[in-house]
Simulated scan of single mutants.
Amino acid sequence: MTGLVELLDRLDRAVAAALSPVTSAEGVSRDGWRVLLMLARGGGRSMGEIASHTALPAPTATRVVDRLVAAKLAYRRTDPEDRRRVLVHLAADGRAVVERVCGRVERRAGEALGSPHTPERAQLAELLEALACQGVNV
């Protein structure tokens, strides 16, 4: 099992190394990136959903969203179904950031991994998705 743990640690560092320069160039922190990526899936998200998804304490998640809103990458709107709730949405500038970052990182990964249309890449994507969906509970 140590091999898997070491591999996951190396993968985490590789992901951070690939994302950090690109997101930093866009003026977005790693936590901000996670929020933008979540918002890019569509629909508005409550602060509770954002905090849960990013595994950030609620006050920290609020500060991250505040920075995204100040940068005009996200915006807040009252939930049309429950006027007591506020939802966070991805702004057009935020969508452009997500597209630029994803494009650059995916091109870089493509250079390292080769063609995106191989059975091995499809299998790797499936395995990573299964791992991400189930999480690793210790």
Rank of each mutant, 00 (worst) to 15 (best):
M1A: 04
T2K: 09
G3D: 15
G3R: 15
G3S: 13
L4T: 01
L7H: 07
L8I: 06
D12Y: 09
V15H: 09
A17F: 05
A18W: 04
A18K: 06
S20Q: 12
S20K: 08
V22K: 11
T23S: 05
G32H: 09
W33G: 00
W33N: 06
R34A: 12
L36Y: 08
L36A: 12
L37W: 03
L37A: 11
L37E: 12
M38W: 05
A40G: 12
R41I: 10
G43H: 03
S46A: 03
I50A: 07
A51G: 06
A51P: 03
H53F: 08
H53V: 02
T54K: 01
A55D: 03
A55T: 08
P59M: 07
A61M: 12
T62P: 05
R63E: 14
V64C: 01
D66I: 07
R67W: 04
V69P: 10
A70Y: 06
L73Q: 05
D79I: 12
D79C: 05
E81M: 03
R83A: 06
L87C: 14
L90V: 11
A91T: 11
A92T: 07
V98E: 00
V98P: 00
V98L: 13
E99G: 03
V101F: 13
C102I: 11
C102Q: 13
V105T: 06
V105Q: 02
E106C: 06
R107D: 15
A109R: 00
G110W: 02
L113A: 15
G114D: 15
S115K: 09
H117W: 01
T118W: 10
R121Y: 11
A122L: 11
A122Y: 09
Q123H: 12
L127D: 04
E129R: 12
A130Y: 02
L131S: 07
C133N: 11
Q134S: 08
G135W: 07
N137L: 13
V138I: 04
